[in-house]
Nucleic acid binder design. Structure first.
Lengths: 347, 347
DNA sequence: TTGTAGGCGTTATCAC
DNA sequence: GTGATAACGCCTACAA
């Protein structure tokens, strides 16, 4: 028998016997569900503490059909935004006694599919995941799961259920317009090669549209590496910038990390930022706030996103009659922050 | 009835009926547990896919007494080290079909206690958590839980069960010795005020011992803020350095973040790093690698730590006869990386 | 206020 | 190779 037997995991029955009552009374006492005399309850709670009894929630859930789980999928934990969002979400969800079941997809739709399936086995009461494209099967599983599905960050073209996010395309377009307004013309866009990453695609589109709307050429597209793009990727591009285009006056990067990398490389080679070349990023990462010059960026607010998501989940699970009327699309605002890396001396 | 009824969540019984067999056969087919004819199995698996049946693992666990969970607690997700460690651990654990149940303590022992209790309700098969002091009750709960307890990162004075980590004190001592070797004498130590954070205390001790061993004074202790210490905290100290001590020639910081902050502030005020003042940090964070100058630091390897932890967990759960002989203390090596911020011109 | 009976969805066990 | 039955530990529903 390869199975580890917990010889004497104390059970509710044990507590009941020690207290001289039935399991039900213990169960009630533990859940502060009115109908227990104060005396009995106190006695029971005393014994519970003494025995360090910890109820088995799996058994409870099986009975109540409420797992107490909210499944959450992010592309990566190793990313301040996702980490912060998850922390915020967790705090709010935990305050109601529920727990987060967390997974990271590594930016892979297939891994996402596997994770969705394995999480669904835990019968979460809701699932929140980043929209970034899903496999057919993922979508089918989510739809059949009978639970609220929340897609986060980017706003999907065809949402499965609820949505909390913003338009990457719009944000990118706004930033590009800002750069144009600042006087840049030969703006390049730096992003990943991997098209599976639809977020990158949205941002690219925003750039392209802004450029075209201003009568500028959007052909300076530099693509390298796979998401998430790193400082190193940016550095490489910076060091070899001439081999891409030699008339660039500004580089808008799909994230702050490569933006920092590009900037460092250019500076090492004597290129002045922002005077010779402007640099902009996306995400408001620490490294762009504290670099010199600091890097202009699109600011997302992961805490806000986490709060909005939490509120939405709790509303949906509240059992309220009004659930049917919960708004399906929730928009979190973005803002553009212009910093030193694009503070061009007027020319 | 406030409870959401999943009207028709398909169950194993449904699959069984559709396949014209009993639940047990479905159960067996699903778990590739030998005794099912190939014909039957294929038929069943076909139906399972068709119906998009997802087994209820809570029910399964109740029966097998194996939850398939490994509980993991870290102080914060918003920290590259912990995030990376968790990702590594997750990947290894997932490959065996188990899942990570993750929580963050926000560096609070009380929050840790609450989390441990709520996780224990899920009957995890093992629990891995950062050692950083525990409440009495936490320790009691962990001991009674009957599952392997792994304390990570720092090595506790009195381990509860297994240990994977390093000695913060030793690492800090080594770095301080290195700084002395580089010619610094009036070395200050910058850390948090909050003593609950034993890691900070260990690092402080290492510094003190190295200084005293070299016949130097360890009185230049700057304490500010609560963990985790931020760039901002460091920046504040840098800006007001004269109000602390005016003869400092080197500042060893409890982490790279404040190290970066101190350095930025000093540089803004015309202090040359490393020539006037050397700066060292702890943790090998990105910001210290890419600052200029780059910041000398103690390098920890979260991936290694995650791997070691995963292997240990899997060994312990393997049901192998040799479990009794598994080593209890696992050490992950640290290294000192000397960078620009302490490359003093010989004097 | 408390207790009894039965079931949640799965698997262990033993019989066929 | 397959099925019937009895758990797993808790909670719902109803009875007292």
């Amino acid at each position: 028998m390869s199975r580890r037997d917990k010889p004497n995991m104390t059970t509710m029955e044990d507590v009941a016997q020690a207290a001289g009552v039935s399991r039900m009374t213990v169960s009630r006492a533990l859940r502060e569900e009115g109908a227990v005399s104060t005396r009995t309850r106190e006695k029971i709670l005393g014994i519970v503490r003494e025995m360090n009894y910890v109820p088995d929630q799996m058994a409870g859930s099986l009975s109540t059909k409420r797992s107490g789980f909210v499944a959450t999928l992010v592309p990566s934990l190793n990313n301040v935004h996702y980490a912060e969002m998850v922390q915020t979400l967790t705090q709010h969800i935990e305050s109601t006694g529920m727990q987060i079941l967390l997974g990271h997809t590594d930016y892979s739709m297939n891994r996402e599919e596997r994770l969705v399936e394995s999480m669904l086995k835990r019968r979460p009461e809701a699932i929140a995941l980043q929209y970034d494209g899903h496999t057919k099967r993922t979508i089918k599983l989510l739809k059949q799961s009978q639970i609220p599905v929340l897609e986060l960050w980017d706003i999907p073209p065809k949402p499965i259920g609820y949505t909390v996010g913003f338009s990457n395309e719009l944000a990118s377009r706004n930033m590009t317009e800002k750069l144009i307004e600042l006087g840049y013309k030969n703006i390049a866009f730096l992003c990943e090669t991997n098209d599976e990453w639809t977020r990158g695609a949205s941002r690219r589109n925003g750039y392209r549209k802004a450029m075209e709307a201003a009568g500028l050429s959007a052909h300076r597209m530099i693509r390298i590496g796979t998401p998430p793009m790193s400082i190193k990727d940016g550095y490489f591009v910076g060091k070899n910038i001439k081999q891409y285009y030699d008339d660039i006056d500004c580089i808008f990067c799909v994230s702050d990390s490569p933006a920092f990398g590009v900037m460092s490389a250019l500076q090492e080679d004597g290129v002045k930022v922002p005077d010779d070349v402007g640099i902009a990023g996306f995400g408001n990462f620490e490294i762009g706030r504290f670099s010199s010059p600091s890097i202009s960026t699109v600011v997302v607010d992961p805490v806000k996103l986490g709060q909005t998501t939490a509120k939405l989940v709790l509303d949906l699970l509240s059992g309220d009659k009004a659930v049917g009327k919960v708004k399906r699309k929730h928009v979190v605002e973005l803002s553009i922050e212009v910093r030193g890396s694009t503070q061009r001396k007027s020319d």
